[in-house]
Amino acid sequence: MAGENVLVAVEGRQLRLSNLDKILYPEYGFSKGEVINYYSRIAPVLLPHLVDRPVTLRRYPNGVDGMSFYEKNTARHTPDWVRTVTVETPGSSTGRDTLDFAIICDLPTMVWAANLAALELHIPQWTVGPRGARHNPDRLVFDLDPGPPATIVECTRVATLLRDALTADGLDPYAKTSGSKGMQLYCAISTTAPEQTSDYAKALAERLAAENSDLVVAKMAKNLRPGKVFIDWSQNNPYKTTVAPYSLRARPAPTVSTPLTWAEVEACERPEDLVFTADEVLDRVDEHGDLFAGLLRKDPPALTGTKARHRKPH
């Protein structure tokens, strides 16, 4: 029955799961129970990328064709065993100076979030300490957004340009699909100030746009973007979030923001080459393990001394 509640035990926690037969992806026939199953099975590779990161849940109670909302502040009915952290949110649309975010650090919390029909998980590029203090960024991210008729195929070309520039700076970039229409590149880094990543990313994006003006734009203006790839460096703003690796996306099919090998990026010829659904991603993890495992390194390179070389040529 779609409305039936099921009581389950997950690593010693009692959870009441509801509406397991409810179809959340109508075109694909993918149910809420299958969403929970996916997140439960992907948890071993997903959880390390969520630990200590306040999560914004994008919830779709009536499926991908229904209304959705971003949930940052944890609701009153949140179990007391879910770890929460109070984060400053100046300029928040709620009018509040702080919000209490959940942190998904274990399997029970993962199942709890999936049961809320939180199809998408969005996280910042920084972590919090054991008492909630916000650390400086430990991730550098570039969001590649194709302007039609450009597709993810053009994004892969820009991704290789970015990879070469980042590698020349001593960084180790990793690529994933957005699970929607674009891509993202990440590097594990260490920083001494919150603005370092944005400054670096902006300078590099502007340099690549100047050198590849037929393919790349570094400004958000819509009129500049048809047929080109926008390198969105602003995702490094400490108050912004990006979809987590292995998160589902609210598309007609249950596509996933999927870590890629560089061989796959280089070989992409059609958009369909880089579309992966939940079942396919589970198979990929069985084959490859976590392709984003390198981001979890304990000794990431410092993001210092690199900005000057990315100034636009005169």
Score class of each variant (00 low, 15 high):
193 A>L: 02
43 A>W: 05
273 D>W: 00
111 V>R: 02
239 Y>Q: 14
249 R>L: 02
313 P>I: 14
277 T>Q: 09
201 A>R: 05
161 L>W: 15
118 A>L: 15
85 V>G: 01
60 Y>H: 04
133 A>R: 05
181 K>M: 07
205 A>L: 09
85 V>A: 13
73 N>M: 05
304 T>G: 06
45 V>D: 14
275 V>I: 14
183 M>E: 13
92 S>P: 15
221 A>V: 04
148 P>S: 07
58 R>T: 07
16 R>C: 03
46 L>I: 03
208 L>W: 05
42 I>S: 02
85 V>S: 05
91 G>P: 11
124 P>F: 13
200 Y>K: 03
196 Q>R: 12
255 T>H: 11
288 H>I: 00
62 N>T: 15
254 P>H: 03
172 D>K: 08
241 T>V: 12
38 Y>H: 07
53 R>I: 01
101 F>T: 11
110 M>V: 05
67 M>R: 10
141 V>M: 12
281 V>R: 10
178 S>D: 03
195 E>N: 03
101 F>H: 01
203 A>Q: 07
225 R>W: 11
33 G>C: 05
87 V>Q: 04
91 G>F: 12
168 A>M: 00
160 T>W: 02
190 S>L: 04
9 A>W: 15
59 R>G: 04
135 H>Y: 01
107 L>Y: 13
221 A>T: 13
225 R>A: 03
227 G>C: 13
167 T>C: 06
114 A>V: 06
51 V>K: 10
203 A>R: 03
252 P>M: 12
108 P>W: 14
258 T>L: 15
26 P>A: 08
221 A>K: 12
294 G>P: 06
59 R>W: 00
85 V>F: 14
199 D>W: 06
225 R>M: 09
152 I>P: 04
1 M>Q: 03
23 I>A: 09
60 Y>D: 00
132 G>W: 01
276 F>M: 00
85 V>W: 06
252 P>S: 14
94 T>G: 01
